[in-house]
């Protein structure tokens, strides 16, 4: 490992070998097992959410109603949520509804959870996509420059800058942007991104700029460092050295050998960042009052809107599982050594 990526140790090491399983059991193709594993994780996640929200509080109804809990109201709510039945039965019921696409009704305004969730989710996805579409090429570019000019002033500059931004909490980045571009210094963009959630985020591009920018600043540092580290590993490898001694043109070495081989960590890193976006976005959306999932979750939590909390949390966790699944499949496509195993 070279210097910088040790700082990224947690994330780099989370890169698991998707086909680590024993080579003997070849009856089931590895990708079927991997997808099965994904579902298993989701199942466990749903239990955890269920426990955290419906069982753990002791009396969810009481914690929902808070101070204005009267015995009648409590009883009614318990009945509505099915809290007076055994926990297992509650869970099975809840899970069955989820699988069939019935997410229940919001406790706050009695609208269906689905109706609330879907447009907000679309906005969040739009925001995340904007961020990743900018951050990924930017990171590959800056990371490559850093690796190529290793230990030079440019590399040092990029390294310290990315280290700083990597450490900054998202809300600090968000507020910083507000100060710079929306209030005191320059008043170019709106400080808040309020628009009706039903509208598409893309029809309010101005509202998208600052939150997307904040997300780019939040995720790029990590990706830059990742690209730099894995590209340096590749450039220091024996196969790059021997390619040089074979007289292969330097450009070809960089693109065909080094970049190609350093893509695996980058794919995993991008997946991890997408999953991370699901969390970081909560804070960024709150800073900009952006009508997305994060905002929805915080609203739901403030109102103790149980079905809405459960659905949102499950959705965010599902994003993690799915994105990681896709990354694993992609990595196997990119790595010939893994392709053969179990196939």
């Amino acid at each position: 490992m070279t210097s910088a990526e040790s700082g990224l140790s947690e994330r780099t090491n989370s890169i698991s070998n998707p086909v680590e399983g024993s080579p003997r059991r070849r009856v089931v193709p590895w990708w079927v097992r991997r997808i099965g594993g994904g579902f298993l994780t989701l199942f466990a996640v749903s239990i955890l959410i269920f426990l955290a929200t419906q069982v753990l509080p002791g009396d969810a109804a009481k914690s929902i109603l808070g101070r204005d809990a009267t015995p009648e109201k409590l009883e009614a709510l318990r009945a509505q949520l099915g809290l007076n039945r055994p926990a297992l039965e509650q869970y099975l019921d809840w899970a069955r509804n989820f699988v069939t696409g019935d997410f229940g009704l919001s406790l706050v305004n009695n609208r269906s959870v689905e109706e609330l969730l879907v447009p907000r989710a679309m906005n969040t996805i739009a925001l995340a996509l904007c961020a990743i579409v900018i951050a990924l090429p930017l990171s590959i570019l800056l990371g490559s420059i850093s690796a190529a000019r290793r230990d030079g002033p440019l590399d040092q500059g990029i390294s310290v800058t990315s280290l700083t931004f990597n450490a900054l909490p998202e809300f600090v980045i968000g507020l910083g942007l507000v100060v710079l571009f929306a209030t005191s210094v320059m008043k170019i963009f709106p400080a808040v991104s309020i628009f009706p959630p039903e509208e598409s985020a893309f029809s309010n591009p101005a509202a998208l700029v600052l939150p997307a920018f904040a997300l780019v600043l939040a995720i790029s540092p990590y990706l830059i460092r990742l690209v730099r580290a894995s590209l340096i590993d590749a450039l220091d490898s024996e196969y790059v050295l021997t390619a040089r001694l074979r007289g292969i043109p330097e450009r070809r070495i960089l693109v065909n050998h080094a970049l190609r081989n350093s893509m695996v960590p980058v794919v995993h890193g991008t997946a991890l960042m997408l999953a991370y976006l699901a969390g970081g976005i909560v804070v960024i959306e709150y800073v900009f009052r952006f009508p997305g999932l994060g905002g929805l979750l915080l609203e739901a939590v403030s109102a103790r809107d149980l079905p809405l909390i459960q659905a949102t949390a499950l959705f965010l966790a599902a994003v993690y599982v799915v994105v990681n699944l896709i990354a694993d499949l992609l990595v196997v496509r990119l790595t010939p050594r893994l392709r053969g195993v179990g196939a």
Binding site: S14, T41, L42, A44, V45, L48, I49, A52, T53, L56, P57, A60, S63, A275, Y276, A278, G279, G280, V282, V283, L297, L298, V301, S302, R304, I309, A313, L316, A317, Y320, V321
Partner: peptide, 18 residues
């Protein structure tokens, strides 16, 4: 499984209930 929850989401869900 724990990793599947974004850090802040996990925190917010627990805090909201307890």
């Amino acid at each position: 499984v724990i990793l599947a929850f974004p850090q802040i989401v996990l925190a917010v869900v627990f805090v909201s209930m307890l």
